[in-house]
Design a protein around this nucleic acid. Structure first.
Length: 466
RNA sequence: GGCGGCAUAGCCAAGCGGUAAGGCACGGGUCUGCAAAACCCUUAUCCCCGGUUCGAUUCCGGGUGUCGCCUCCA
């Protein structure tokens, strides 16, 4: 069973072969930190974090680099509007990014380089391009000579002449060719700037990724990833920059995630339907959001709505409940270290098969539900051996962990003494067949979000699903 | 105009040559003091028209619909 990944470069699923055995070097384009991230930014974060976790699960050591674009036009505009310096805005939203992605259980990258902290490498990179004749200075700007790079368009599968029609020249720019793109932009009065051989200014958008990939991962890496919209021009331009200099492939595999739509419409500022993760996690369990994102194959678009998210709450709750019920049952019996490996393997195999098929998390999640159903059947039998129950618990914990889904909340295991007393009182009442008293206590607890369930192994409680 | 994706039950979503995974919702049942949780049962001529094939949801051609990219939007 081998891992296959869909490569935008070839438009085919290809067998994944790492450059170095046992190692994966991947780069994921990160956000421009001028605002809180929206769910569209969350998707690549979640999806490629899952890719990373799966590689690690398979025993690879992953060097995962993801940048912060902390200087560009949007940051400069935000700075003007708010009257706050660019670095301060960047700092604010890098912090927010970390909080939001952490809530979604996205692991921190091995390195999170920032454009402003990579300035010497960026300038050196541009310098080499100029020396090699691939770039030229013009009125303090530096542009890449797109037509010089013969393979331009290979990623987006566009011929350079077709791209020509869309190219444009902004006011104030003086390019040799409309297709040329900026590597360095001269600072306008009052703008944040860095010194360079071409005067004071700041980097263009694409060059930071080329410089960072080179700095942290090398001339050729295994995987380069990002949102589908980055295919062109961003990644195409990165390829042009890096490959014209290094004369070797920038990345062997290019992965792109599909977009998120809101009620079947594109999410955009002009429509006014941008949903920020910052706001969404106040309303929904972040784990549910992660789960929802992973229920669809990463390359396909996902529609987003409250109704769909509510369904996801129910569905994810089912996995949590099964997980919890297993833990509860094992808690009440003598625990054993032995577990039924046959059961574990029964689900591990199809799970791996699903993930090996271009990270088909939809099918992987279906395996989780299959195991949950079988676990529930096992739970209903009073004579099920602990080795089986422990195996189901292991399956759910291990496989959900690969997807970065947390099935257990810390808060689920803490019960204050007052509630505990009430539960005991209710048990007393039930023994005495005072059901009215027992039910009243149950209702009371329900009102405060504690649901009681009577099982052959005793009363079981859990927090209500939101 | 160029390039591409998608179209599967009420909803979401896998499958992609041998007559359809999984989830949510609905209905019926079992279990329970009553519940809850859970389990069982029930629900699909796979957008249309041609073609290839013993056989197509799956491959090819043509439609229709829909979404996206085409210079700084994940």
């Amino acid at each position: 069973m081998v891992l296959k990944v869909f490569n935008t470069l070839t438009r085919k699923k290809e067998v994944f072969k790492p450059i170095d055995k046992g190692h994966v070097r991947m780069y994921v384009c990160g956000p421009t930190v001028y605002n809180y991230i929206h769910i569209g930014n969350a998707r690549p974060a979640v999806v490629f974090d899952t890719v990373r976790r799966y590689f690690e699960y398979q025993g690879y050591k992953v060097n995962y680099v993801s940048n912060f674009t902390d200087v560009d036009d949007r940051l400069i505009n935000a700075s003007k509007e708010r009257g706050i310096p660019v670095p301060q805005i960047a700092e604010q939203f890098i912090k927010a990014y970390k909080e939001d992605t952490e809530a979604l259980n996205v692991k921190a990258a091995t390195v999170h380089p920032r454009a402003t902290e990579t300035m010497p490498e960026i300038i050196a990179f541009i310098h080499k391009l100029v020396d090699a004749g691939y770039a030229y200075e013009s009125k303090g700007d530096v542009y890449f000579r797109t037509r010089r790079f013969k393979e331009y368009g290979k990623l987006s599968h566009q011929s350079i002449d077709h791209l020509k029609s869309g190219a444009r020249i902004e006011i104030g720019e003086s390019k040799e060719d409309p297709l040329d793109f900026a590597l360095w932009k001269a600072a306008k009065p009052g703008e944040i700037k860095w010194a360079s051989p071409w005067g004071e200014g700041r980097p263009g958008w694409h060059i930071e990724c080329s410089a960072m990939v080179e700095k942290y991962l090398g001339d050729t890496i295994d995987i380069h990833a990002g949102g589908t919209d980055l295919t062109f021009p961003h990644h195409e331009n990165e390829i042009a920059q890096s490959e014209s200099l290094h004369h070797q492939m920038m990345a062997h595999y290019w992965l792109h995630n599909g977009h998120i739509q809101i009620n079947h419409e594109k999410m955009s500022k002009s429509i006014g339907n941008v949903i920020l993760v910052h706001d969404l996690i106040k309303k929904y369990d972040p784990q549910v959001i992660r789960f929802f994102i992973l229920t669809v194959q990463y390359r396909h678009p996902i529609n987003f709505s409250d109704a769909l998210l509510s369904d996801a709450v129910q569905a994810f709750g089912r996995l949590k409940t099964t997980h919890y019920n297993l833990s509860h049952r094992l808690d009440h019996e003598v625990s054993s270290d032995q577990l039924n490996e046959t059961i574990v393997e029964k689900y591990r195999a199809p799970f791996t098969e699903a993930m090996n098929d271009d990270f088909n998390t939809a099918n992987a999640i279906a395996v989780l539900f299959d195991s949950a159903r079988d676990a529930n059947i096992a739970l209903q039998k009073t004579q099920t051996p602990e080795s089986d129950l422990a195996a189901y618990l292991k399956v759910l914990t291990e496989l959900s962990g690969v997807l970065g889904l947390k099935l257990a909340d810390e808060s689920d295991s803490i019960l204050d003494s007052e509630v505990e007393t009430l539960i005991k009182k209710r048990e007393e009442a039930r023994k005495n067949r005072e059901f009215a008293v027992a039910d009243a206590i149950r209702d009371q607890l329900k009102a405060s979000g504690i649901l009681l369930e009577d099982t052959p192994q005793g009363v079981r409680w859990r927090r209500g699903r939101e």
